[in-house]
Amino acid sequence: MTAYLRPALSLVMLMTLVTGALYPLAVTGIAQLAFPEQANGSLVRDGQGQVRGSALIAQGFSGDGWFHPRPSAGAYATVASGASNLGPGNPALAERVSADAATLYQASLGPVPQALLTTSASGLDPHLPPAAIAYQLPRVAAARQVPEARLQALVDEATLQPLVGPAVVNVLVLNQALQRLAPLPGN
């Protein structure tokens, strides 16, 4: 048995050195040189340099003057992230969805898009489908007293259409642009 001991222990140590230390350090080195923005968390800063969030992590927004992201099962907690894990037949899911739909429903706009009623897998989904943005646009335009067409131009700028996935709008980026265009008093 001792014949196995030395190679086993030495290879565990050597593999730890190579794959557990050298490899992550090499990736970090190259990543920090080539893609420093992304490697450090795609942080979003304001004019004063204060970190206001990450473009990839949703923030909770409340009030009529902001676009709201998807609901979060973990109330937008980042440590730890979490999902509802409600089964499709769980009565708690139907109750929550109907209650939220009753609040958000606008007869003039039709039924509420599902993205505004369902919690995301991460609880931190930074995006919304364009239809879910369109559903909120009249409310935000009214609250900020901005013409809807002007707001739509901002939305179009913040819309991503990858070749291999659905079109999405980054809510934080959009809200930041919105705040520059027509600041809400007190923010």
Partner: peptide, 28 residues
């Protein structure tokens, strides 16, 4: 490296502290 390019973090820095657009504290 492809993943970092797309936005996956790769750093040894501490968790970042942010003030959200509506003024709440957020740990990243």
């Amino acid at each position: 490296l492809l993943l970092v390019w797309q936005g996956v973090p790769q750093t040894f820095a501490d968790y970042a502290n942010a003030i959200t657009l509506q003024g709440a504290e957020q740990t990243i």
